[in-house]
Design a protein around this nucleic acid. Structure first.
Lengths: 69, 69
DNA sequence: CCTTTACGTAAAGGTTACTTTACATTTCAT
DNA sequence: ATGAAATGTAAAGTAACCTTTACGTAAAGG
């Protein structure tokens, strides 16, 4: 499972630390997420997507090629 | 966090057992989910939504009143 | 009554998300 | 070179997801 967190974070001019604070998670969580090290909880995925004003399926990519048909 | 799993499952004429098998999780997981006992992983939330051909935000309701627009 | 099917609870255990702390590297500025 | 800001890794601990097993209830049918 891939995600666009790093890309979106940079486009919004946020550091990992800032994003972590806004999401109320640790910086490690952001790092691990950006590195694709795990499958977040739905609530965290939702908070991230909401922060970037996007749908969950547009931030997290589950399958190659298509996810939002 | 609320969700429409029970409603959707019944509309698709599935038992908890059948849904659990299709999702490759235990029946307990379905029961707990339907009862709102926890916050699933993103991947499970995705699989559930996909099974009902819906967006995650249309199956899981995060805030009262509005979630999609 | 007895069995089967579907739904529900409870509790113990494994796995993994997430935290916390510590330390290393790179980049930017002085 | 020195210092601060940003990113990264590693490791140990806590919290939560999810499984497994066991048991209880209610409805449908023989």
């Amino acid at each position: 499972m891939q995600n666009r967190i790093k890309d979106l974070r940079q486009k919004h001019d946020l550091t990992q630390d800032e994003l972590a604070e806004r999401l109320e998670v640790s910086r490690q969580t952001i790092i691990s997420l950006e590195k694709g090290r795990y499958n977040p909880s739905l609530i965290l995925a939702y908070k991230i997507s909401k922060m970037f004003e996007m749908q969950i399926e547009d931030v997290f990519i589950f399958e190659e090629g298509n996810n939002n048909g």
